[in-house]
Amino acid sequence: MMKEDFKLNDIPKRNVYKVPENYFDRLPMRVMEQTAAQEEATVSINSAKWWRLGRIAIAPLMLLLLFVCVYFYNNNREAEQKDTFAIQQIPAQDIVEYLDTYATLEAADFENLSVSHKGLAAEFLNVSPTSAEEELEYYTLDESNL
């Protein structure tokens, strides 16, 4: 059977819920205490977490560092070997022609040449050993050349 119509406005607005005595007087202090405690817990959890993570990460990091070092060491060696190999491929005549065109040689450069390369110096200067000796007779030696 249909009951009579009911309207929400017929009910007086009232709060039916109760709180313990002095609840709202104590709540701010409890909130402050809990905030401080949680903040402290968060900080200690975070630092413990980072410390734990750090300890776990140290081994892979060292391994990674080792790989990086080995990689760069090998790369450098390969590059050096390539340079040496490339220079070895250039014919001696080309080097001599290059130096003849672009290089300015000084007396100190000849001091660095080993005995086995004396022939190369003569060839490079394009003078006979006799002419060179004659030239040297007029060359004045000072202390810096000795």
Binding site: I11, R14, V16, Y17, K18, V19, P20
Partner: peptide, 10 residues
């Protein structure tokens, strides 16, 4: 016990 009110309120 923290909730009080007459029948219609509940």
């Amino acid at each position: 016990p923290d909730i009080t009110g007459d029948e219609i309120q509940l």
